[in-house]
Design a protein around this nucleic acid. Structure first.
Lengths: 202, 202
DNA sequence: TGTACATCAGTGAACGCGCGTTCACTGATGTAC
DNA sequence: TGTACATCAGTGAACGCGCGTTCACTGATGTAC
């Protein structure tokens, strides 16, 4: 079975994408090499033609997740005014949809408590990703006319991540929704944005 | 080797305490039965004289952690004025010491991303613990003369947990310290407390 | 008072299982001659 | 044009390991007679 020239690279990319989702759903320990390969329609032995080790895969998958997150944030803020874009980002981050779908959500929420037990490599990728995201968000905040973007961005991201974390932990859905809504309102107020639900909330 | 009447209960309590620390340090999957028993000076076989299963231990350890957390919060708020007590709690939650010692810290920060993969029993214990903590905090907030304690307490806890989560993820210590400091300032401002570092911060 | 027996927290060998990793192999196709 | 060989993504059996869990056993002490 000879394959096309791009075939291996395509398989590799597919594995990274699948791993990114499995990583956020099941965590680094829960992601199994055999299961991942199976989900791509392959057998476990082929894994090592693509990655040096499971840890190498995890780091690559995490990098890809952050690249994707930053790309999405960039996309969001292309069209509308900086203020509307910011409101939209906050609404979508603090939406019940984000809470309910960890597999495509923010890695900070999905992976933070696994972090201390992971390899230096993985933690470095995480750190770099967070910095990028904060920097990106800081730019949007300053574009909205606010000073001290870096500090505000860090604070906003921490608050949003904490709110989603807690909203996932709480069993009562009404309470969980209320928490997200009140976080949306609170953060927007702090950024001087009006809470008109311009974005994707609810 | 016959033991005193209270011996078994003492051993049981000791195991729960040790498990509570190991749980926050290594996570539910990282905590090994054999290692736990070894750390108590026992062999792994004896475990099942104390707990029906590993999962039963995890749930019991988690309950104990939350009981302890609530006890501490109660203690803190006994002596001083409600406002000073609240400031003290915020400072100690957002302290570098809390960031650096997960094994005795807040379970929300240490365990949140493991939660979705745990048993119903474990998640129920977590949920109950969070509710207690929120209720407890809401009481302190209302005692400080603020309305809407429940909503504020949830928001404050989410923001604090998010800040510690992020401060643990960031490698740069200066940046991590700054994040905690700015969260302290921000939360106190929202609660109408002056940021005079009345508590244990730095 | 002395002996036989019951108690029971803890021991340690053994189990089945899933994991990450290795490696000799396959087999369809491109290339050399 | 036809044959022999090289290529290489993927296969699948096998490995060593640590895990949670089971269970027959130990042995110091309290109790019964």
């Amino acid at each position: 079975m000879r394959y096309s020239e791009t075939h291996k690279a395509e398989t590799h990319a597919k594995l990274v994408k699948l791993a990114g989702r499995a990583l956020r759903e099941k965590g680094p320990e829960g992601l199994s090499v055999a299961e991942l390969m199976g989900s791509a329609g392959l057998t476990h032995g082929g894994f090592y033609a693509h990655f040096k080790s499971k840890d190498a895969l995890l780091a690559e998958a995490l990098q890809d997740i952050f690249v994707e997150s930053n790309r999405k944030l960039g996309q969001m803020t292309e069209g509308p005014s900086p203020r509307a874009a910011l409101a939209w980002f906050i609404d979508s981050y603090l939406s019940p949809a984000h809470r309910d779908k960890a597999s495509t959500g923010c890695p900070i929420v999905a992976l933070n408590s696994d972090l201390p037990r992971q390899s230096r490599r993985f933690r470095a990728a995480f750190d770099a990703g967070v910095r990028q995201l904060v920097g990106n968000l800081a730019d949007r905040i300053e574009a909205s006319g606010l000073a001290d973007g870096q500090r505000l961005a860090t604070l906003v991201l921490a608050t949003m991540a904490g709110a989603v974390v807690l909203s996932r932990a709480v069993t009562d859905e009404g309470l969980s929704d209320a928490l997200l809504a009140s976080a949306r309102k609170n953060i927007k107020a702090q950024l001087g944005l009006t809470d008109t639900d311009e974005g994707a909330a609810r």
